[in-house]
Simulated scan of single mutants.
Amino acid sequence: MAIDAKNEANIDVRKDELLERIADAVVDMDEDAVEELANQSLAEEIDAYETIDRGLARGMERAGQLFEEEEYFVPELLMCSDAMNVGIDVLKPHLKSEDGRRKGKVVIGVVAGDTHDIGKNLVGLMLETGGFEVIDLGRDIAPEEFVAQAKAHQADIIGIATLMTTTMPGMQEVVDILAEQGIRDQYKVMVGGAPISPAFARKIGADGYAKNAAEAVRVAGELLEGSAKIGA
């Protein structure tokens, strides 16, 4: 039993190291390394979802932090995204949906004035894998368009993302438009993105906040169950 426990611990260490190397490769903008390491993770039977979450997404999150700290700029961020997408292309065919049933419908987009959609794309992929139907509106989406599309598609959740502080007020506008039209209680509003905080989400009256793509899946599920709470 002690030997088995030791072997399991060694496997976990190797997995952690591999996922960290994948994250590093994304930050380093090294597409070849990402492809090689993503294939290695499959060969070692690491769950594709976990590789995206703890490898690719974590690397992209670190790249986003470097962008916020002005150590990386848009060209570097885009090259990190290209590296991440190489890994996603390797892993996507191996993603397993939780079950065959759709949990709910999510309209998702990047708010008007922001054309950065890296994080939004990853959230959409994770939500689809998590069993949600996703209507991706794209980027630079006007607040009224979020509402119009949510109504047109009979969505359960409106997901709004941004990478820029200057476009954050657009999230408030979506909530306000829903209230003005008397349909606020028909939709759950979930927000996220590098400059967004739980405090901001509460301030604008959002129903949910997710700090990363993997958390977005959990929060979306909780929103449908009525158990979601925006933390500190």
Rank of each mutant, 00 (worst) to 15 (best):
T129S: 10
E144T: 13
D136K: 02
A228Y: 10
E68W: 10
M84V: 01
F73V: 05
G138S: 11
N7E: 15
L223G: 05
S227D: 14
D185N: 14
N212C: 08
N7S: 12
I135A: 07
S197H: 04
G119W: 05
C80H: 00
G226I: 08
I196M: 08
L78F: 09
A201Y: 07
G231W: 10
Y187R: 10
M79W: 01
A33W: 00
Q186T: 13
R54I: 00
L224R: 06
R102Y: 13
I3K: 05
I118E: 03
E71H: 08
M190E: 08
M60D: 02
E31V: 07
H94I: 09
E31S: 02
Q154E: 15
V26N: 03
G87M: 02
R21Q: 15
E36F: 09
F132T: 02
G208V: 05
P75S: 05
A150W: 05
I46Q: 01
E71F: 04
L78C: 04
A2Y: 09
E61D: 12
P75W: 07
A25H: 01
P75Q: 02
M168H: 06
E76M: 10
L224I: 11
K6I: 14
E222L: 14
I108A: 14
V217E: 00
V174K: 04
C80K: 01
G109T: 07
E71N: 09
V134D: 05
I46A: 00
A5W: 06
M171L: 15
A83C: 07
R139Y: 03
A38E: 01
G119I: 06
V26L: 06
A9E: 15
A43M: 12
A48Y: 00
D117F: 05
D176Q: 15
E31P: 00
L125Y: 04
E20P: 00
L127M: 09
I135H: 12
K15Q: 12
A48P: 00
E70Y: 13
L37S: 00
S197F: 05
M168V: 03
D12Q: 14
K203M: 13
G192W: 06
V13L: 15
I183W: 09
E76T: 06
L163R: 03
D99F: 10
R62N: 08
A5I: 11
A148I: 07
F67M: 12
T115Q: 10
E68A: 15
E50I: 02
A210T: 06
Q40P: 00
V86I: 14
G130Y: 03
G130F: 07
N85Y: 14
G205H: 09
V26K: 03
K229I: 11
H94T: 05
K105R: 15
L137R: 08
G159Q: 09
I183V: 15
E68T: 11
G87Y: 01
G113N: 10
P198L: 04
N7I: 14
E70L: 13
